[in-house]
Write a protein that binds this DNA or RNA. Sequence first.
DNA 1: CCATATTTAAT
DNA 2: TTAAATATG
Length: 495
Amino acid sequence: MAPERWLFWHRRDLRLADNRGLAAAAAATPAVTGVFVLDPAILSDPSMAPARLWFLSESLRELQQAWQQAGSTLVVLRGDPAELLPRLAAGLGAAVVAWNRDVEPFGRERDRRVARALQADGRKVLADWDQLLVAPEALKTGAGDPYRVYGPYWRSWRRWVEEASATGTAASGGLDPLPPPSALIDLDPAQLAGALADLPLTNPELKHGFLEHGFGGAELCPCRPGEKAAQEQLAAFCDGDSRSISLLGYEPGRNIPGEAGTSGLSAALKFGTLSPRQAWAAAQQARPLARSEEERYSIQVWEQELAWREFYQQALFYFPELAEGPYRPQWRAFPWDNDSGWFEAWREGLTGMPIIDAAMRQLNESGWMHNRCRMIVASFLVKDLICDWRWGEAAFMARLVDGDLAANNGGWQWSASSGMDPKPLRIFNPATQAGKFDPEGTYIRTWLPELRHVATRDLISGEIAPLERRGYPAPLVNHKVQQARFKALYATIKG
DNA sequence: CCATATTTAAT
DNA sequence: TTAAATATG
């Protein structure tokens, strides 16, 4: 008798190794078929970035080959998962459909619909956590509430991760990365063809992969698609050979946008070509390489970035209203200027403030922006241009290769001072930020080649003589004037 | 053991 | 300013 067939539904876990849901399926039966559904509701949304379509398409193409090498098939469909998954499961004769859980309101509602449809057909559903080191339910404050403040969350998160690490294996609740499944069993070709006959199947085309993405910045983007590239990037970042621009030099290297001092793994973690447990394990293996207190501290700072990612995901899980706008009610009445001309100048990198324009051009050309610059341009849009941060949030989502609702919304709410974090106003002075983090003007000159001739001091301050500008715009606003205006408007909503 | 007041600390 | 931890009744 043939073994029971399971269907595994990939979503934001585009890898075979250390995929908890897939491993659970493979532990139950070797007869596992994979599926990914290209959902027009997501792909055609205005917030979908060409860079993400590129990353998704390339990662899927590699994942489909990996399934084949593991002995089975990854089916790629296009349409509504709630309609297609029951049909595919029926065609395959799958008894169980498994997937990894998500935190986003849209995904959770979709998953409920899919589960209801499958269960109505008498199929079992298996869904558990994979995309976080620590499941949202695992950490609560002393009062039993979800954490709203990063500091206490980080301490609690680290304690939990260290205790779970000590137990080792996944079976005993540990965090050791799992190997990929191998020796899977496929349906025989005729049976598979029959199961797929009436389904909207998508095959990778020779040139573009699964999707027409129209993204031209792949060469400039630091994020590499696919499971294999993610492993290589992680290993290179953690290896200790290039200490100043890697994990061991992460602090302060991570804050210098003109150097490649960050891991570039944001998109890999967003799409799950890399698991957070793999990232955590690599950081632990690098600890013996650290030869100074600074290098040990660098590892911890990177671990804290993994914790920020999980903090914002658990926040969205427990407070889905974050996705709709300001968490703090008084911010909902803020009298934004919302000048659409200023907003467009910001979005296209034409504000006349070099550090802002360099950062926005990096985003527009490469699909990625250095995190320090994300904070600087966010503060500028909100506190200098006095524009609703949700416009900036949407603009980031429309272009970022790693655009993720929880992280992007969390970052913008942090910058706008409207989030759960109880700290008062944060106003960055863009010139001070440029002076601290791009002191030689390296980053500015990289992305604003038309200003390469300008003295570094003027690139940082933004005070460029009209004859030196050569077509580069004059500053749109004056920081001193605008921050005073912002504070006056803020006073009207306080309390 | 609760509920409430006070203290502490926040990338 | 306010969440979280801790002290107090």
